[in-house]
Every structure is written in structure tokens, then in C-alpha cells.
């Protein structure tokens, strides 16, 4: 493959859009041709520059996010305690609800007891 034939393949190669055959051809040629390798590295630099990866958000953004993460750490024990308290309360409520009612006095005694003389 000549340098002129390789040139149109460099962009797809750099962006990962080559076919396997084109990729092999690029790699073979670039390994043996310093001029094309320089052109390829230049293209790569341009792509990286265009992506603007040297820009960062303000440090304030990171500080705010860090504070939120740290707050999660502090909140967790509180959340666990609240969850445990809620669980205990629910268990107690369930126990009360499921508890059998106290035994009533035998109905025969109530019905058959004669009215007290004192009340009459």
C-alpha cells in the first residue's frame, strides 16, 4: 500500500471505524513509514484537542459533590437506627394485634346467676 492509498484510511482508523482489513493495512504501513506515522499522530492530536479534554469544571463542583457523598456516610447510621426503630415498633404492633383476647368468664355463670338480693 502506498502513502497516498493509506491517507484516506487514517481517519476511520483513528476513530475506530475501519474494517479489520483496513486496520491491518494501516498498522502494517504505519509501522514501516515514519512520514505516515507522523501524519497519523498529528491527526490523533487534533482529535484529542477537539474533544477539549483539558477543560474541567470549577473545583466548587467537585467540593459540592464530595460534601454530598460525605453526608451519605453520616446519614447511614441515622437511617439504620430509624429503620431498626421502625422495625421494632412494627413487631410490637403485630404482637399486640395477634395476641389472643383475655379469656372471658364462662357465660353459664353470667346467665344462670340469680340476681343478687342486695340489688333488689
Amino acid at each position: 500500500m502506498t502513502c497516498a492509498e493509506l491517507e484516506p484510511l487514517l481517519m476511520p482508523y483513528e476513530l475506530g471505524a475501519s474494517t479489520p482489513a483496513e486496520r491491518d493495512a494501516c498498522e502494517t504501513h504505519l509501522a514501516a513509514c515514519p512520514a505516515c506515522l507522523a501524519a497519523f499522530l498529528s491527526l490523533k492530536r487534533v482529535r484529542e484537542d477537539a474533544a477539549a479534554f483539558d477543560e474541567r469544571p470549577s473545583p466548587v463542583v467537585r467540593d459540592r459533590l464530595r460534601a454530598r457523598v460525605a453526608a451519605r456516610s453520616r446519614r447511614r447510621p441515622v437511617l439504620w437506627a430509624a429503620a431498626a426503630a421502625a422495625l421494632i415498633a412494627a413487631a410490637l404492633a403485630l404482637k399486640v394485634l395477634l395476641q389472643p383476647p383475655p379469656p372471658a368468664p364462662p357465660s353459664s355463670l353470667i346467665d344462670s346467676a340469680p340476681p343478687s338480693e342486695d340489688l333488689l
Binding site: 474533544a51 477539549a52 479534554f53 483539558d54 477543560e55 474541567r56 469544571p57 467537585r62 459533590l65 464530595r66 457523598v69 460525605a70 453526608a71 451519605r72 456516610s73 453520616r74 446519614r75 447511614r76
Partner: peptide
């Protein structure tokens, strides 16, 4: 980081800060 580990967050943030911000900014 979700469990509140700030050091883990720092690492994660450093890995993706520039790439994500560059993407959003563009």
C-alpha cells in the same frame, strides 16, 4: 461512593471529570 466513601468518589471523579465535562461542554 454510594456508601459515602469520599476517597472512592475522588478516584471515580478524577477518572471521568475531564472526559465527561468535555463532552457536556461541547
Amino acid at each position: 461512593a454510594r456508601r459515602g466513601d469520599v476517597a472512592a468518589f475522588d478516584q471515580l471523579y478524577a477518572r471521568w471529570e475531564r472526559r465527561l465535562f468535555g463532552f457536556v461542554l461541547r
